[in-house]
Design a protein around this nucleic acid. Structure first.
Length: 830
RNA sequence: GCCCCUGUGGCGGAAUUGGUAGACGCGCUCGACUCAAAAUCGAGUUCCGCAAGGAGUGCCCGUUCGACUCGGGCCAGGGGCACCA
């Protein structure tokens, strides 16, 4: 055996062996139990760095481990290949988005292959392949026909120069990020998916996702935002019309001092038509930006319409109707009743416009006349100044008001959701074309499936602003599928989140003629372990859950939840450097500048990003240290859910470990006889490693191996030692597969270590027969003694009381009490 | 503003149900090998103290024979949502 492990040769060799042998192909017809391990598939933005690598290596360890445990493992890889960066590249560099994307995919695939991942590459696809998005179009048509797709007008951020819709993140200080032109709010007719139809089950379903982080479940729960409350109507004075409002605090109904409607409310819009002042006010409200910062500082503005409404519980009580900028049209009913005493926004509004502030909740009846000053009181208490509600607690009063409203017919208890329907239209080229044709006679007609896929035209230009699909001379002109008359294609494309809402199903099953084969998909799904960044905690994971449930409702797939286990891993961070002028420097530039005596400022340790020039690509690391050292470092030290700081010392340490492993295996000495202590350590390690890998606690698994390696190095030659070394190779094989294969072969084994079953821990070796007992006085450690496992309480107590240190501290006094925890400790209470 | 999470050596971090705090790694110190270096090996490394001993898991209280762990109140850092009625 060579004295040093040469990863340059070994990595390539074993990767070729795995590849040619189809080692990691997932067989649909295997009799083994299945395990589906999936990392969130990457967007092909250019190159991966070690932060991405960490993500894939974690999944890889689990996939390889499950395989050794006897599972048929599906561990696929593909590309989330549609999206804006490709269009930006097209505009900036005059390359076709498809060309740019496919070049990136090739480069990134090459990078991933350097890591020696146990992937089934035969299932690879990119979402920009018509063979993928064509099926997505078919599914969209299915959803359309099931009534889960509809069109409606929706407000968007519109860049008048680039003639395009902007996402909120692309609006900077109220201007388009590229053009710099002031963004307008414009109404466009857009396609929506009825995710709100599933709000209830998406919320309820979270309870069953016990292998998801609590944090993510909570975030989804808040995002779905179920609020229980009451809708009720205020009759407009002098007419039959009424204004419907929603509240979560029906108990405060006697604290009302005004009604306010959104500037987008039909009542406001109607009034605006006949009144220039109202129209101006509405326009004023719309002018403000939509960013969070602007909303936070925006002043509460109101316009008194002069209209009055009657209080539903007292027809003689009239309230003014305002149009107010802080009332949102798309939550609740777009109208509220204001209770300044117990709602901070209403308080500010009432203070500004001189409206009454009534107390209806107080700490006790004696505080009924205590004025409310400074800010609204939103806490608990008892009802006061509220007629039939007086004396009730808040919850009882809510129920009482709802009961009365329902009995009298002017309102009802209800639930409203924060979740809104999913707008999927994007006025962009590089996405899945929406398979709809607009016909003058027939309206919006979905394309029959035999006319799918609708393929993106290749001959497009990005010279002019706007959507190239819309400008294309011929593409959009098609006959209507229903009547055959002249019609126009929908030129919007689907949000890329649609592409990622079902790719995991397509990985499991990819027939040519339909999106998936139900039986095969159901064999593999759900994904047993999904791994990805927490930045997708809400949108992607919620959309995928929705899509899966929609397919179930359509009878296409018997599956409620797509991802049984979810793990959100931390990022890889790295030191940043700047020069004296504040420009970011690459690590090697910083070195050079330091050597040249120039000023270099070490910046903060931050997430790797191109702009901050602190990215570490995998290639030079793999070249210098090998894939295993990189893998080992990415798994060491930090718990996987936390950030890992990239350091040279860290990768050096991992490299040393890989060599140490090799040395241990190659210096395997002859030896006979048993070494019971080492046998114990080995089997304890087998048990701990298995548990830690299944819990994705890779940093602890790494520590288990170090402990075992230390024990083996200290042990004298023996048969046990030889067995320990060979077993250790099997234990590390999922983490450092190349050196494990190389050593396994060098020790004379035929066949791959990847195919060797995971070792079984011998339960009789997991327990020690002698244990260390802590001797405490008043809970403080005073000594430790060795005792046989299972020693009698009396015996342990005697050992403690007679202990030299204990006697010295007791100084002749009798202990008040002695607590014995068998096999652990004795605590003498003085 | 509302909701949530996290605070342990010089650093990353371990610690079943409350039961020997600091496993393991990095770094550092000393030593061995070497002409020398790298690599490797050995010893040490929470703090104060020569030692005996004392203190110690963000801070303050509490429960307990015993608290990193449980309860209450603060402080600091991070995250999510945000004119959501």
């Amino acid at each position: 055996m060579a004295s040093r492990f040469n990863p340059l040769k070994a990595d390539a060799h074993w990767q070729k062996v795995w590849d040619e042998g189809g080692t990691f192909r997932a067989r649909d017809d295997s009799a083994r139990p299945k395990s589906y391990v999936l990392e969130m598939f990457p967007y092909p933005s250019g190159r991966i760095h070690v932060g991405h690598a960490r993500n894939y290596v974690m999944g890889d360890v689990l996939a390889r481990y499950k395989r050794m445990k006897g599972f048929e493992v599906l561990h696929p890889m593909g590309w989330d290949a549609f999206g804006m960066p490709a269009e930006n590249a097209a505009i900036e560099r005059k390359v076709h988005p498809g060309e740019w994307t496919r070049a990136n995919i090739d480069a990134m695939r090459g990078q991933l292959k350097l890591l020696g991942l146990a992937l089934d590459w035969s299932r690879e696809f990119a979402t920009c392949d018509p063979a993928y998005y064509g099926h997505e179009q078919a599914l969209f048509v299915d959803l359309f026909e099931a009534g889960l797709v509809y069109r409606k007008d929706s407000e968007v951020n519109w860049d008048p120069v680039d003639m395009t819709v902007l996402a909120n993140e692309q609006v900077i200080d109220g201007c388009g990020w590229r053009s710099g032109a002031p963004v307008e709010r414009r109404k466009l007719t857009q396609w929506f998916l009825k995710i709100t139809d599933f709000a209830d089950e998406l919320l309820e379903g979270l309870a069953d996702l016990d292998q998801w982080p609590d944090k993510v479940r909570l975030m989804q729960e808040n995002w779905i935002g179920r609020s229980r409350g009451m809708k009720f109507r205020f009759a407009l004075a002098g007419g039959d019309e009424s204004v419907e409002v929603f509240t979560t605090r029906p108990d405060t109904i006697f604290g009302a001092s005004f009604v306010a409607v959104s500037p987008d409310h039909p009542l406001a819009l109607g009034l605006g038509k006949g009144d220039a002042k109202i129209a101006d006010f509405i326009a004023l409200c719309k002018r403000g930006g939509t960013t969070a910062a602007e909303l936070e500082t925006a002043e509460k503005l109101g316009f008194d319409t002069g209209l009055k409404v009657a209080h539903p519980l007292d027809p003689t009580w009239e309230l003014p109707v305002y149009i107010a900028n802080f009332v949102l049209m798309d939550y609740g009913t777009g109208a509220i009743f204001g209770v300044p005493g117990h709602d901070q926004r209403d308080f500010e509004f009432a203070t500004k416009y001189g409206l009454p502030i009534r107390r209806v909740v107080a700490a006790g009846p004696e505080d009924a006349d205590k004025p409310i000053t400074g800010e609204a009181e939103s806490g608990e208490g008892v009802l006061v100044n509220s007629r039939f509600l007086d004396g009730m607690d808040v919850e009882s009063a809510k129920a009482a008001v709802i009961a009365r409203a329902e009995a009298e017919g002017w309102g009802e208890g209800t639930i409203v959701w924060r979740l809104r329907d999913w707008g999927v239209s994007r006025q962009r080229y590089w996405g899945t074309p929406i398979p709809i044709v607009h016909c003058q006679a027939c309206g919006a007609v979905p394309l029959p499936k035999d006319q799918l896929p609708v393929v993106l035209p290749e001959d497009i230009d990005f010279e002019a602003p706007g959507n190239p699909l819309d400008r294309h001379p011929t593409w959009k002109h098609v006959p209507c599928p229903a009547c055959g008359g002249a019609a126009l294609r929908e030129t919007d494309t689907l949000d890329t989140f649609v592409d990622s809402s079902w790719y995991f199903i397509r990985f499991a099953s990819q027939p040519a003629d339909r999106p998936f084969d139900r039986a095969v998909a159901e064999r593999w799904l759900p994904v047993d372990q999904y791994i990805g960044g927490v930045e997708h905690a809400i949108l992607h994971l919620l959309y995928a859950r929705f899509w899966t449930r929609a397919l179930r409702r359509l009878g296409m797939l018997d599956l409620a939840e797509p991802f049984q286990g979810l793990f959100t891993q931390g990022m890889v961070t790295h030191l940043t450097h700047r020069d004296a002028d504040g420009n970011w420097l690459l690590p090697e530039e910083a070195e050079a500048a330091k050597a040249a005596g120039e000023a270099v400022v070490a910046g903060r340790i931050e997430k790797m990003s191109k702009s901050k020039k602190n990215v570490i690509p995998p290639e030079p690391i793999v070249e210098q240290y090998g894939a295993d050292a990189l893998r080992w470092f990415l798994l060491s030290d930090s718990p996987p859910e936390r950030d890992l700081q990239w350091t040279d010392a860290g990768i050096e340490g991992a490299w040393r470990f890989v060599q140490r492993l090799w040395r241990l295996a190659s210096a395997e000495e002859r030896g006979e006889g048993e070494d019971e202590a080492l046998d114990r350590k080995l089997h304890q390690t087998i048990a701990a490693m298995g548990a830690n890998i299944e819990a994705l606690a890779f940093n602890k698994a790494v520590a288990n191996i170090y402990e075992l390696a230390n024990a083996i190095e200290k042990a004298a030659p023996s048969a046990s030692r030889i067995a320990a070394i060979r077993t250790m190779l099997r234990l590390v094989a999922p983490m450092v597969p190349h050196v494990a294969e190389e050593a396994w072969a060098a020790l004379g084994h035929n066949g791959l270590i990847a195919d060797v079953p995971w070792p079984e821990a011998d339960p009789t070796l997991l327990v020690e027969d002698e244990v260390t007992i802590a001797i405490q006085v008043n809970g403080k450690l005073r000594d430790t003694v060795r005792a046989p496992k299972g020693a009698a309480r009396e015996k342990l107590e005697a050992m403690a009381v007679e202990n030299e240190n204990v006697r010295r501290i007791l100084a002749g006094a009798a202990p008040r009490k002695v607590i014995v925890v068998p096999d652990r400790l004795v605590n003498v209470v003085a």
